[in-house]
C-alpha cells in the first residue's frame, strides 16, 4: 500500500499566548508536530510495513520538514505556502489536493487533533473517501487496513477497504526523540516542495473578527507550607460541600 502520513499541519497551541484583552498572540509560530502526530506516524509505519508498501510524508508550511524524515519516513512533500487557517475544510482541501498530487495513494493517516477535529474528516470528504477517526492504532492485513479504537466500552477493530483516511488520536503525550544519526540522515532524504498553486488549492473565506477572554474560571491555588496548603484545601472543599 502507498501510505501518506500527514504531519506538522497545524500550529502548536502551546506556542500561543492569550493577551489580557483576549487577543491571541501566536508569536509567529510555524506549523509544529501535533500531540497526535507521533501516534499517527506509528500507525502509518505499521500499515506500510505490514502491507510491504511505502510511506510518504506530507507537511504544510515552510517549517522544518525533517520531523518525519528523522523518524523513518524515506521521502516527504511540503506545501510550503499553506497558511494556518480557522477553516478546517480549507486546510483539508489543501491536504487532499496534495494527496492527489502525490498520486496512487491507498491510505492517508493523519492525527485526529482535538484542536482541529474537522480536518481528518474533511480530508476524506474532499477525496470522496471513507474515513475512520479516533483510531488508537492500526495495521494492514490482506490488502485491508485494520484499525483499532479503544473506548470506555471496550476495544473495537474495524476492517477498512482502501482508499481510506485514518485519523489517529494519541492516548498519551509520547514522542520518540530521534538520535543525532537519524537527524543527520533526515537532511539527506528527498523533500519535494509544492505550492498551493501547484496542487490547485485555495484558502477559503472564513474571517476572524478577533477574540475575547472567556468568562473567568476561578482557580484558587494555595501555596505555603504543606500544613498550610492542606488546611486551606480541606477548608475550601468543605465549603464547596464535597467532603
Amino acid at each position: 500500500m502507498r501510505v501518506v502520513i500527514v504531519y506538522k499541519w497545524a500550529r502548536d497551541p502551546g506556542a500561543a499566548a492569550v493577551r489580557a484583552d483576549g487577543s491571541v498572540d501566536w508569536r509567529g509560530a510555524k506549523m509544529a508536530a501535533g500531540e497526535d502526530d507521533p501516534a499517527a506516524l506509528a500507525a502509518a509505519q505499521r500499515i506500510a510495513t505490514a502491507s510491504g508498501g511505502e510511506l510518504v510524508g506530507l507537511t504544510l508550511g515552510s517549517g522544518d520538514a525533517s520531523w518525519a524524515l528523522a523518524r523513518g519516513v524515506q521521502t516527504a512533500c511540503s506545501v510550503t505556502d499553506a497558511p494556518a487557517l480557522a477553516d478546517n475544510a480549507a486546510t483539508a482541501a489543501i491536504i487532499a489536493a496534495a494527496v492527489r498530487h502525490i498520486g496512487d495513494v491507498d491510505v492517508v493517516v493523519i492525527g485526529d487533533a482535538k484542536q482541529d477535529p474537522g480536518v481528518a474528516v474533511a480530508v476524506a470528504g474532499h477525496l470522496r473517501w471513507p474515513a475512520l477517526v479516533a483510531v488508537t492504532s492500526a495495521t494492514a492485513e490482506d490488502g485491508q487496513v485494520l484499525a483499532t479504537r479503544r473506548t470506555p466500552e471496550g476495544t473495537t477493530t474495524v476492517r477498512l477497504g482502501t482508499p481510506v483516511v485514518v485519523g489517529v488520536a494519541a492516548e498519551a503525550d509520547v514522542d520518540r526523540v530521534p538520535g543525532m544519526k537519524e537527524l543527520l540522515a533526515a537532511r539527506k532524504r528527498p523533500l519535494t516542495t509544492l505550492t498551493l498553486a501547484q496542487v490547485g488549492a485555495t484558502v477559503g473565506d472564513v474571517e476572524s473578527r478577533g477574540s475575547e477572554l472567556p468568562p473567568p474560571r476561578a482557580t484558587h491555588v494555595f501555596e505555603g507550607s504543606p500544613e498550610q496548603v492542606a488546611g486551606q484545601l480541606v477548608a475550601a472543599l468543605r465549603a464547596e460541600g464535597v467532603l
Binding site: 483576549g22 480557522a86 482535538k114 472564513v206 473578527r209 478577533g210 477574540s211
Partner: peptide
C-alpha cells in the same frame, strides 16, 4: 480556541 482559553468570533 486554545482549549477554551479564548473565545473567537468568525464570519463565513
Amino acid at each position: 480556541v486554545l482549549g477554551g482559553e479564548a473565545i473567537e468570533t468568525l464570519t463565513a
